[in-house]
Design a protein around this nucleic acid. Sequence first.
DNA 1: GCTAATCTTGAATGTACATTCAAGTAAGGG
DNA 2: CCCTTACTTGAATGTACATTCAAGATTAGC
Lengths: 197, 197
Amino acid sequence: MARQAEFNRDTVITRATTVFWERGYGKTSVGDLVSATGLQPGSLYAAFGNKKGLFLEVIDHYNRGFLGKVGALRDAPGRSMDKLEGLLQQVVDDAAAGDDERGCLTVNALLEMSMHDADIAERLRGHNARLRKAFAWLIKDAQTEGDIGTTRDANELASFVLNNLWGLRVMCKSRPDRASLDAIVEGVLKGLRSATN
Amino acid sequence: MARQAEFNRDTVITRATTVFWERGYGKTSVGDLVSATGLQPGSLYAAFGNKKGLFLEVIDHYNRGFLGKVGALRDAPGRSMDKLEGLLQQVVDDAAAGDDERGCLTVNALLEMSMHDADIAERLRGHNARLRKAFAWLIKDAQTEGDIGTTRDANELASFVLNNLWGLRVMCKSRPDRASLDAIVEGVLKGLRSATN
DNA sequence: GCTAATCTTGAATGTACATTCAAGTAAGGG
DNA sequence: CCCTTACTTGAATGTACATTCAAGATTAGC
């Protein structure tokens, strides 16, 4: 009965993600998005409402991805403590390689936007809460496996881990040395483990 | 031989700090700065070159302040380990009060600008390095006082502490609960202390 | 009280931007 | 093959902004 859209929504979101991630929200112009996605302003606005609408979908998509990764890790075989270490190590590797000066889209967005846009702030806070819960599950597993003591609450320990993850996402912006990054991972693991008793 | 300036440079910088801190660099217009400082565009440009020049002076001023605080702490009486805990606790108190959703001007600026402006990025990296050194001195003191083991390098442990400080500056943007914040401080202290042996 | 030097004022300049909209284009049912 | 419905195009709109500049104001030495 009507003409069908020529673009694929996921492809557009993925391409928009790259631009927002590299430039931040404020510095990304609609023109940049037009170039990156191949959609003209009219189509972009018809599909996403406005720049902010597209951005919200972008951060949702991004967080679903990361959350999925942590969830999948939980189902994978191996000790949970090793999985946690592996996750941190991966962030450290990216930071050390200098590839990832972009940091984390969520952290970038949180710092840039939370004071200025209540909708974006709320969305990001929700994502953070879900991510913490995912880490808490992993920590609970490590507690039942005996690698972390049960005297401390898993949710609170998850906040400690998350805090260091966010820290690393800030650190990577100032090209830190490898030894320091390794010391951070070591510090986190000791901070977790020493609750064993 | 010539007319003298009517404004006080430090006052202008302090007022500009407030605006940049609340709004970020990109969202702060020169108009905002004109309102906040009382200087007209012409005077502002004569005194600081441009918006970026003023911002550079603002972050220098801000960091001198924080660095001075850590330096003064070192000369104060008491155990260094307690001083470190006190510093973290202060950030936690601010975050828990919800006063300080502004976070840290340096962290905000690092995330907003490091990818887009090499001058600002370099300046901030320098400040970070100096801050880490200040923490390393405090940790060295704690090592000689016997509260932290000497098997691990003080600079690397300082990175771990700094990492958590940066993390807290991100955390405070999503209104975290008190218990989690306390758990973070506890995690850092255990991560440091467990090196004692 | 004149001159030279500097500061202050605020309107003007030019650019970049988010968003809108009217005209053109495809697709499928009748 | 026509009509309805929806998508696409890209120029137009209006606003917000960083920076400049010419005209006026203030100081200190002479």
